[in-house]
């Protein structure tokens, strides 16, 4: 797995939580990244490439999520994911 591991915490600001469509946006984004990104909510942990995992988080409005990227150019990957959350999944 090599390289460094970085993390960042975001808050879900989607009115309906992290529902199916934003989950699918995350997966799409993840597939273009060269490293592993995972999301943690409490004791739950999801691979952002796995749509079922993401749905399983049942992340609602206001929930805090910890994003963690590891591998090559983890910084860059993490920034892209954080950016998606900060734009509130705008196109």
């Amino acid at each position: 797995m090599g390289g460094q591991s970085v993390s960042h915490t975001v808050t879900v600001r989607l009115e309906n939580g992290l529902h199916l469509v934003p989950c699918s946006r995350l997966v799409k984004l993840a597939n273009g990244l060269g490293c592993d990104v995972r999301i943690r909510k409490g004791s739950l942990d999801a691979d952002i490439k796995n749509i079922f995992d993401l749905m399983g988080l049942a992340a609602a409005f206001g929930d805090q999520l910890e994003l963690r990227a590891s591998g090559d150019r983890a910084d860059e990957a993490l920034a892209k994911v954080v950016q998606l959350f900060e734009s509130n999944f705008a196109d």
């Binding site: 199916l20 469509v21 699918s24 997966v27 799409k28 749509i51």
Partner: peptide
């Protein structure tokens, strides 16, 4: 587009590598 995206997500579930 936002409605279409729902079906897009369904395809994504169907095509998910885990499944």
């Amino acid at each position: 587009k936002e409605y279409g995206a729902i079906f897009g997500a369904h395809v994504m579930m169907a095509r998910s590598p885990e499944l």
